[in-house]
Nucleic acid binder design. Structure first.
Length: 299
DNA sequence: TCCTTATGTACAA
DNA sequence: TGTACCTAAGGAC
């Protein structure tokens, strides 16, 4: 279930389960065996997400505090240049693609299936990665190159929405295509795209250059809130409180994706708000969903 | 048991 | 624009 919120959640979950101590890494499926062997015995130091890219930073563990040392005298300790959190020596760069999945569990870990690309194990937990489109060991400069080709991510504190708007406002491409372009904005996928355009009444085929600054500002802020909720609940819910099944007296969505949505994967069903039939179309090899009546908004 | 589909991306032509 | 890649679930038979 990989849009940006999933990856940010994984960054937190990997850190919570593995950061600090030594880790046993393996690749039952085989494609990551050499790297896993290199990493075994080192520690997960830091995790990071940018859009749909996940980075796991490994390095020498922080040395244990020396409990046998004499207690400090009244003199202040000399500054220790090696103090502070150690910098990762290597990063695992993970991208789940369309199919990738991550499963956490408590030890003892069950025997892995032969599709597990990467398993991490420590004394208390294990985690399996299956089906990623990317799982490679990279250096810090290589990691930086990934950041450099990604647009701002609404879930990152360093994100600048104006950088995204500069590209949107100069483009003849549709806003639907631009929202999926990770160079423009990182982390939005097919669900958030469809839903945020519905929530703002914007025709998905409107050219980016016709999106007003006020509209972009509203889209950005909305995505930030929706995706933060997505991280918190580990699923995508986009329906406003007044439009929930309980509030409107309609049956809840029965779907393997779980969350309540307005238009995503609701082709040929009536719009929750106006009753018009929700439409779908192919756009750059992905399915676009929208309500032609609610999403006519012009600037 | 086979077929389709999926919250994604990269690269070739 | 088409195709390749990675996996698993659900539905049609």
């Amino acid at each position: 279930m990989p849009e940006g919120h999933t990856i940010h959640r994984l960054a937190k979950d990997y850190a919570a389960a593995f950061a600090g101590g030594p880790t046993l890494a393996s690749s039952p499926q085989g494609k990551f065996s050499d790297a896993a062997a290199l990493l075994t015995g080192t520690s997960l130091i830091r995790t990071e997400a940018h859009g749909k890219h996940l980075f796991l930073g490994f390095g020498a563990a922080e040395p244990e505090p020396d409990v046998t040392a004499e207690p400090a005298e009244s003199e202040p300790a000399a500054p220790d240049v090696t103090a502070g959190p150690p910098e990762p020596a290597d990063w695992i760069h993970i991208h789940l693609g369309l199919f990738g999945k991550v499963t956490f569990g408590d030890t003892p870990a069950p025997p892995p299936t032969d599709t597990v690309r990467l398993r991490l194990v420590n004394e208390t937990a294990y985690v399996d990665l299956r089906g990623p489109t990317t799982c490679t060991l990279i250096t810090d400069p290589e990691k930086q190159a990934v950041h450099d080709r990604l647009g701002p991510d609404p879930l990152r504190p360093d994100a600048d929405p104006r950088a995204a708007y500069r590209r949107v406002s100069r483009s003849r491409s549709t806003i639907a295509a631009l929202l999926m372009d990770q160079k423009v904005i990182a982390g939005v996928g097919n669900v958030y795209r469809a839903e945020v355009l519905f929530r703002h009444g914007i025709d998905p085929y409107r050219p980016g250059r016709d999106v007003t600054p006020a509209e972009w500002d509203a889209i950005w802020r909305d995505l930030t809130e929706l995706m933060r909720e997505g991280v918190r609940h580990n699923r995508i819910d986009t329906v406003r409180p007044e439009h929930t099944p309980e509030a409107m007296g309609r049956p809840p969505r029965v779907d393997d994706h779980g969350g309540e949505v307005y238009v995503y994967r609701r082709a040929d069903q009536p719009c929750h708000l106006c009753g018009e039939t929700v439409r779908t179309a192919d756009l750059a090899a992905r399915n676009l969903f929208w309500c032609p009546s609610c999403q006519r908004g012009r600037p």
